[in-house]
Simulated scan of single mutants.
Amino acid sequence: MFVFEIIVPGTWLDYEDSDWTWKIQNQLYSLQSQFFEANLALNLFISAQTSRSHSFSKDTWDANSKRRREISEMLEQEYIKQGKNYWESHDEISLQTDIIFKREKWQQGTIPREFEHNLSFLYARAFLYALDAFDKFLGVLSREENVPEVISELHKKISDIFPDLRGVRNTAQHLEDRSRGLGRNNKPLDLKPIENNFINAPNGGALVLNSLNGSKYGSTMVDGHYGEVDVSPESMSHLQEILNNILGAFNWHGPKQHKPSV
């Protein structure tokens, strides 16, 4: 498990304007909340990726095949007792075997492959949304009066480190448009070339949605380019540095705080 730690330089902000202090401190709490949400999403993503890579087992395959045969034979006997022709009932027996077998497995705690496949994507998007929310909160904070000038610089740093963040998040929230090849104002996308170790479309024309290339979650963005956000400890390290610098830019009083908790 990856736990990214932060040090809050004090317990309360130390400024004379109580209204301003209350407002800014709440925004700093929101940044911390999104930071730890991203950290959680990262761990869940890594766990889902690891689980998928170890999900196949020959012993499990053999046991499943044996149980399917048992169910099928049981159904065959029932159909014969009912006077039904086996060959005419073959498709129905096959369907009922599949239904009974899967319901048994679900009752035993087996996760459907569709669920398991989508877990990584679900957690990747959770990371993406937490990162995007962090960026938005920081943007609001940077525009507040009397905040340290470095806050604006730190906000810009997010764009430098995650240049595709806004574009990939926008596509994730507008898949109903991108899937139809539409961009802003329902205009057709001008699909740009893509060349990486996952996709090779040097002449353009490739529409990519909701994809995972290792730890990189990517999609075609509204400008037609393919963009990615890395769901990785390295990304969290960048965010950790930014958050610690944000917190350190303000004046505090009271004991320092180490987060997260236990």
Rank of each mutant, 00 (worst) to 15 (best):
E37F: 09
E114I: 07
S33A: 13
Q27G: 07
E70H: 09
G109Y: 02
A48T: 04
K81C: 04
N26A: 15
R125F: 03
N85V: 13
L119P: 01
T60Q: 10
I111L: 08
Q49M: 14
I46K: 09
S57H: 11
L42K: 07
S89Q: 02
Y129N: 04
K81F: 07
D98I: 05
I99T: 06
Y15G: 03
E92M: 10
A63N: 11
W22T: 12
K105C: 12
L122M: 09
Y15I: 13
I71Y: 00
L95C: 03
I24E: 00
E92S: 11
Q82E: 15
S72A: 11
I93H: 00
S120I: 00
L122F: 14
R125D: 05
F45T: 00
D132E: 11
S89D: 03
S89R: 01
Q32Y: 04
T110Q: 08
E104Q: 15
P112I: 00
Q32R: 15
H117Y: 13
Y123C: 04
D91Q: 12
Q49K: 15
S33F: 11
P112T: 01
N85F: 10
K23R: 12
K102P: 01
D91A: 14
L42M: 14
F56M: 08
S33D: 10
K66L: 09
H90F: 08
T110A: 08
T60G: 04
R103F: 06
S47G: 06
T21Y: 08
T21A: 14
L31G: 02
S30Y: 11
F36T: 10
S30W: 11
D62T: 05
Q34G: 03
T97I: 11
A126F: 14
A133N: 10
L75M: 12
F134Y: 13
A130F: 03
N39L: 06
D132S: 14
L42N: 04
W20T: 03
Y129E: 06
T97P: 01
W106E: 14
Q96V: 14
L131C: 08
